[in-house]
Nucleic acid binder design. Structure first.
Length: 240
DNA sequence: GCGACAG
DNA sequence: ATCTTGTCGC
């Protein structure tokens, strides 16, 4: 007998309600992250690369998530899915996953059914291992779904980094003390770098290679741009 | 106690 | 994240 809903896209029963529970869950789940693995070379895969993002309307207590699948080679949009729900957790630095993942899982599960297969890679807006407890949004989503994930953020959070060279592709280590937790990666010549980190089942080199491939025309990856536009539209539609 | 702080 | 007009430039 086949279950109607894939359990890999369901919220765990022990999903936290308080900050203390959330931190404790991160501490005991961080060991499940897999660093390294094989994903198809950027641009040569025959599968789909998925971008996820979330938008909020705190006035109406609404949250809208979007998951957009792009053809790994052409970057053309092949499938889209959205999910709307109630905001269930406040924004707390270090606990972003608990605010975004519920809606993201819903959208991702729907997208999987529409695609008819699992994505090659999921690109998240935020961090993976570059996190106070090495378990940011991208890593958490990866562990829950079992999918390869990466985190691409627009800000360095509290981490240190030297300014990368001026050209697209130039990068410098993102450091938490002496530990390298990710990379500051320049995706466009003379434009502010992005901050890339491993989510789950990928190497940092592949994470950066994919980010560059997806950010061919703009500073941000095409996956993130499409997902961002879609979740904003879904939020407006839900508000009206 | 003060400041910093992904989205 | 979100509140927000025009404006400079490709």
């Amino acid at each position: 007998m086949t279950s109607a809903v894939d359990p890999r896209y369901e919220l765990p029963r022990d999903w936290p309600t308080t900050e203390a529970e959330a931190v404790a869950l991160q501490e005991r789940t961080r060991a499940s992250v897999v660093v390294g693995g094989e994903v198809p070379e950027p641009g040569t895969g025959t599968g789909a690369v998925v971008g996820v993002d979330v938008a909020y309307d705190d006035e109406h207590d609404l949250v809208a998530a979007a998951a957009v699948a792009l053809d790994a080679r052409s970057l053309a949009v092949v499938a889209e899915a959205t999910a709307v729900g109630r905001v269930s957790f406040p924004y707390v630095p270090g606990l972003l996953a608990f605010r975004e993942i519920p809606a993201v899982l819903d959208a991702l599960g729907d997208l999987d059914r529409r695609l008819g297969r699992r994505p090659d890679l999921v690109v998240c807006d935020g961090y993976g291992l570059a996190h106070p407890r090495r378990f940011g949004l991208a890593s958490h989503l990866g562990v829950l779904t079992g999918l390869p994930t990466i985190g691409v953020a627009k800000n360095p959070f509290g981490f240190r980094h030297a300014d990368p060279g001026p050209r697209r592709g130039d990068w410098s280590p993102l450091l938490d003390g002496a530990e390298e937790v990710g990379r500051a990666l320049r995706t466009r010549d003379a434009v502010k770098p992005l901050f890339v980190s491993i989510g789950h089942r990928v190497t940092i080199a592949d994470a950066c290679a994919y980010t560059l491939h997806l950010a061919r025309d703009f500073r941000q990856p095409e996956t993130t741009r499409r997902a961002d536009a879609l979740c904003r539209r879904a939020l407006k539609a839900a508000t009206l």
